[in-house]
């Protein structure tokens, strides 16, 4: 076969492969692109309470700048994000270390440790709603059994964010622990042997070797959790619906209510696109951090 014929055959094969895979590619792109493009388009529309629609240009975005609820929602979102992420990373690393070193821990105990994140968030929300009920819940009963004062938990404007952060951390810390455990198991044993020969204490070994080497894994876990935390919805909606008052009204909850309870889909789309931009920003920032700590 001449070179020209071989090239033509290769080109035909490529063409055939492209033609065969085109439907799947088009379908996938459409499935991703259509909702995004549609939401962007909706963000430029305004809907009256009766669903009447008209082009609004950038009105939804300019409204957003002067909307107190938006800024409040952003603040609540960030507060919940920071608090939950810190709790989950700190306790996730700790739990991973426990599981890593407790090699003789029975499988059932290991499974129990990681079971919360397998529970649907709606179920977790319902369960904690009952446990934390100030009148009927077990949490206050336990506190009072130890002579401690009861708490209003989810009904207190002051404590609602820490309480939701605790619920989310209860559920997702094991997930972070699993990721970190994977990172721990892949660390080179030679550096630990060298540290042992040099007489490094357990704390120094953790501080100077384990933690730096684990950082890329921890940042990966942080990225995964960040995306979820910024979009956090289910547990908040089940437990407080954004209350008491607006104390737990995250951007996601606010956007949902604007869209599906007040029927202003245009403004809700603008809110959600802004939140999407924030999520992208956070992921980009963490990606840069991951690049900086890579080894």
């Amino acid at each position: 076969m001449s070179d020209t014929a071989a090239i033509l055959t290769q080109d035909r094969q490529k063409l055939e492969m492209s033609a065969l895979s085109a439907p799947a590619v088009v379908f996938t792109v459409a499935m991703i692109a259509f909702p995004v493009v549609y939401t962007i388009w909706l963000g430029f529309q305004t809907f009256s309470s009766t669903g009447k629609q008209s082009f609004a240009g950038l009105a939804n975005y300019s409204k957003l700048v002067s909307d107190y609820e938006f800024w409040h929602g952003l603040w609540v979102t960030i507060a919940l994000f920071v608090l939950s992420l810190v709790l989950q990373l700190v306790f996730g690393v700790w739990l991973a270390l426990v599981l890593f070193h407790a090699k003789r821990l029975p499988g059932i105990v290991r499974s129990l440790f990681i079971s919360p994140f397998m529970m649907p968030p709606v179920v977790a929300g319902m369960m904690w709603l009952v446990i934390l009920d100030p009148s009927l819940g077990a949490a206050n009963y336990i506190l009072q059994s130890f002579g401690l004062p009861p708490s209003d938990w989810l009904a207190s404007p002051t404590w609602v964010i820490p309480t939701i952060a605790l619920i989310d951390s209860w559920q997702w810390t094991p997930y972070v622990a699993l990721i970190v455990l994977g990172g721990l198991q892949s660390l080179p044993p030679s550096v630990y042997e060298a540290a042992q020969i040099d007489g490094a204490s357990a704390f120094k070994t953790f501080q100077r070797i384990t933690l730096p080497l684990l950082l890329p894994t921890i940042v990966t876990a942080a990225i995964l959790r960040s995306v979820d935390l910024l979009r956090f919805f289910d547990i908040i909606y089940i437990t407080t619906q954004g209350g008491p008052g607006n104390a737990s009204n995250t951007l996601n909850i606010y956007g949902f209510r604007v869209g599906f309870e007040f029927f202003n889909i245009g403004y809700a789309s603008a809110l959600m696109l802004t939140l999407t931009a924030i999520v992208f920003g956070a992921v980009l920032a963490f990606n840069r951090l991951r690049g900086a700590v890579a080894w």
Binding site: L136, P150, D152, A155
Partner: peptide, 21 residues
Amino acid sequence: GPPGVVNYSFQQISALYRSGR
């Protein structure tokens, strides 16, 4: 009212009353 009443709707009210509290 009960502590945490700002989160009370029909489910919590019925549960509280039914339990005799």
